[in-house]
């Protein structure tokens, strides 16, 4: 076990899976010699050759369409879409082709496609390069969506996604790419649909996903100093949602805060809150609170950006509210 940065863990997962299975190939803008827009594919073309690590033109729909065809015929392509915002260009391929193929062929066609993309803010990326649009995808049956919250998840979830026979969108967070932690060197694979308890607690459950897991852990640490014990759950998967893990935690805490970086409106947290309202109402001692971005475009201006996006302070405020409703 060695300390690795998030982006390095992604690289390691790709490398190990390409070693393991000759059907795995990479497609995307600059994934070849440049090593990817953020360095995630560095050294892979050198190692596996230009046949398996292909640079593509800047035409996202064409690239994903190509990958869907390749996946149908037996390859396991991993496409990198530089910014999640650009998924808008790929939606027809993802929603009307990738998500439907297995259903429409009665299971005869598998679609082992992975789309890696990333999100993140706090670097003035602005309205068109910082959105968290995972809820667009979770509304579509047939697409799995995971959001690795750190280097271990980046490796374990990506490896599981490549081995899965369904289309999986892996939403990385570029503001975490430099984050380093101990990552297992061996064949480390995490289940795609299970949440993890990152910190145990008894007063409030904080169900978080992606970068907000880090903020939730920081909030829990700050609150612990005031005698408030928070249980932090990393949902890991936006679709399917692991309701059982959250329910089990709620049985103990009876209070829930949900944190994600996407806008609250129509987000994954809305789905989680609604599902628990149906299934776990009689476990609640307080209203469920959601923490998310305000319903507004992400501004370029750093002070305005800070005002709009959620952080640990917003989580702390939400925890205080559910403790004293």
């Amino acid at each position: 076990m060695a300390e690795k940065r998030y982006v390095r863990a992604v690289n390691e997962a790709l490398c190990e899976e390409m070693e393991r299975d000759p059907a795995v190939c990479l497609l995307g803008v600059d994934v070849g010699a440049p090593g990817g827009p953020f360095g995630a594919t560095r050294g892979l073309q050198e190692r596996f050759g230009p046949q398996r690590v292909r640079d593509t033109p800047i035409s996202e729909a064409a690239v994903v369409g190509l990958a869907i065809g390749a996946a149908t015929l037996g390859l396991r392509p991993v496409v990198e879409i530089m910014f999640m915002d650009f998924l808008a260009l790929v939606m027809d391929q993802l929603v009307n082709q990738a998500a439907k193929m297995r259903y429409m062929t009665g299971g005869q066609a598998k679609l082992p496609l992975v789309v890696r993309t990333q999100t993140g803010y706090r670097d003035s990326a602005g309205p068109q390069h910082a959105q968290s649009l995972e809820a667009w995808l979770t509304h579509v049956p047939g697409l799995k969506v995971v959001m690795p919250s750190g280097p271990c998840e980046a490796k374990g979830l990506l490896k599981a996604a490549i081995r899965d026979d369904n289309p999986v969108i892996v939403v990385e967070n570029r503001t975490l790419y430099a984050l380093a932690e101990e990552v297992p060197d061996d064949d480390y694979v995490l289940p795609l649909e299970r949440a993890a308890i990152k910190r145990e607690g008894r007063d409030v459950t904080i169900a978080s996903i992606g970068v907000m897991v880090r903020e939730a852990l920081a909030a829990a640490e700050a609150l612990a100093g005031r005698g408030i014990s928070c249980e932090v759950i990393d949902l890991r998967s936006a679709n399917p949602l692991d309701l059982q893990t959250v329910r089990t935690s709620l049985e103990k805490t009876n209070r829930l805060v949900i944190a994600h970086s996407a806008t609250r409106c129509g987000g994954v947290g809305a789905e989680l809150a609604a599902a628990l309202g149906e299934e776990a109402f009689y476990m609640l001692d307080a209203p469920i609170m959601r923490v998310g971005a305000a319903f507004a475009p992400i501004p370029f201006s750093p002070p305005l950006e800070r005002a709009i996006v959620p952080d640990r302070a917003a989580i702390i405020a939400a925890v205080e509210r559910v403790l004293a409703p």
Binding site: C265, P287, A294, F295, A317, P325
Partner: peptide, 12 residues
């Protein structure tokens, strides 16, 4: 309406 209000609202 989501846009009009930040965390808060009517206690259940």
């Amino acid at each position: 309406r989501e846009a009009q209000k930040l965390p808060g609202g009517v206690p259940a």
